[in-house]
Every structure is written in structure tokens, then in C-alpha cells.
Simulated assay, not measured.
Amino acid sequence: MRPADALSCAAVDASYGPVQVLYGVNVRVAAGEMVGVCGPNGVGKTTLVRVLAGLQRPGAGGRVLLEGRDITGVPAARRVRLGLSTVVGQQAFGSLTVEENLRMYGYTVSRRDGRLRKAVDGAFAVFPRLYERRDQPASTLSGGERQMLVLAKTLIQRPRVLLIDEFSLGLAPVVVGGLLEMVRRLNRLGTALLVVEQSVNVALSLVDRAYFMEKGTIVAEHTSADLADRPDLVQSLMLGGHA
């Protein structure tokens, strides 16, 4: 019997009012795996992240499972406590300092025995640039630094599954390269990842396997190795030529 996936969803529909966005989406991430969801803007990638994170309920019949447990009706905050965290772009509390942001992210960490302090110090050790800016408001950070800040929260929360939505958007390639190495480090620590990316090059440089979306459905699934020498196939998948 195959062990339960770290995260999966089955037959997920989703709508905004009368407009349906997702149609019967099935995705799975095995324990310790890095999986990508790729496709151009407007195909439903972010809506899928919202459903998985608990920010939006799927239609009737859709299910979301975390390590085999049905969490379809579990609120987003509770999902964090169960081991599922989400990184969306460069979102941070702009009026709070870097250190205050990290302490806010540590709401799931026990305050006993100085555990939160140790967790924050551990994040600073990994991101020394954030330590240098620990007393600055997050709104004053560069885009790359804000992305470091939202990745640093995962070092504090230590999720078993991490959702990342468009974390390379608007960042210089050299900054993205450093952030990708941090994501790989999280994976080596045991975190399974689902990475939603418009940049297929970024996604395939990171993940083991990728799903491709078109018009709210999954139209293809390939390993990164399969696509390494198939730029023609990658292009067709990203441009809607999956058939």
C-alpha cells in the first residue's frame, strides 16, 4: 500500500460567483517531493493555491488531503498548525519591522523555554541580510529582501508542506538563484513543496515533476527530466498546444 501523499486534491472545482475557474483538478505531492504547477496568467494557478491553503472552498465533491487527512473544511489558520504553510509573492506586514514580522509568523511556535527566540535567531542565521535590517519596516526592503522575509517564516514554522505562489515574479535572476537554493535547503530539511510558477524555466530548474494548466484544468504532467531536452514540448504546453 502506497503511503499517503504529503498533499493532494481530487476533483476540485472552484468559482468566483457565477464564473467557474477550476474544473476537476487533481494534484498530488509525495512526501519530500518538489512539484510544480505551470501555465500562463489566468489559467487558475493562484485559485488552486487558495483552495489548497484553505482560503477558498472547492465546489461540492472536491477534496483536499494533507498527509491522508481530509482538510477540505479546515480553516486556513488551522492548516498552518497542521503543517501546511503558504508563501505568496513578497507579502509581508509593511508597517512592522523585519523582526516583528518573524515573531508574528511564529504564532504556532511555543513561547516556552525561549523557543520562539531561538527560531527567530535561526532564521537570522540563514538570512544574515535580514538580521542587518531587523529593525527596519518591511516596507523599506527591496523585493528580494521581502522574498527572503517570507521564506524565513518557513524556517520558523517548519511546515511539512509548503505552497509557493510566483515567488520569482519581478526579481532579478541573480536574486532568484539565491532564493531557489534556499527552497532546496528547505526541501532537504524534509519539507515537501508545491511551487506555482509562470516562469517554466524557474520551475523546472527546481522541481522533480510538473503539472501544466490550461483554462482551469490540468492538461499534462511530466518529470523535469522528461522535459530537459524538449523545449518544443515545453513551449507548446505553455502556449496551450497540449494536444
Rank of each mutant, 00 (worst) to 15 (best):
L48V: 08
K215P: 14
R69I: 04
L52N: 13
A152H: 03
T86N: 11
L116D: 05
T140Y: 09
E67L: 13
L48M: 14
Y105W: 12
M34T: 13
V202Y: 02
L227H: 00
V64R: 04
R209F: 09
V109W: 00
V120K: 02
R185A: 14
T154S: 14
L204C: 02
G59F: 12
G241R: 04
I71D: 10
R184G: 00
K118P: 01
V29T: 03
R209A: 02
G216E: 02
G122H: 03
S8V: 03
L52W: 07
G170F: 06
V19H: 12
F93G: 01
A138T: 07
N201I: 01
M1T: 13
V49M: 09
G143P: 10
R63H: 04
T140I: 09
A30K: 14
V219H: 07
V64D: 06
A203W: 02
L169S: 13
L151P: 03
G143V: 12
A11L: 06
L7G: 05
L55F: 15
V43C: 11
G17D: 07
S168G: 03
D5R: 10
L186Q: 09
V150W: 03
V196C: 04
G240S: 04
G36A: 15
R158H: 12
P58L: 14
L102Y: 00
S139I: 10
K118S: 11
G114I: 05
D229L: 15
R63I: 13
Q136E: 15
L193I: 12
P58H: 12
L82P: 10
V21T: 07
Y105N: 08
M104K: 02
G177Y: 11
V196G: 01
L22M: 04
L204I: 01
L66I: 03
A10E: 13
S139R: 14
G83I: 04
G17L: 01
V175N: 09
L48W: 05
G42S: 11
I164R: 01
V87T: 09
V80G: 03
R2K: 13
M213F: 04
G170R: 09
F124H: 05
A53N: 12
D226W: 07
V19W: 07
A172N: 07
A14N: 11
L130W: 06
K153R: 15
G170D: 05
M148K: 06
R134M: 00
D13W: 07
D165P: 12
L149Q: 03
A172I: 02
Q157H: 02
P40W: 06
G143A: 06
E67R: 14
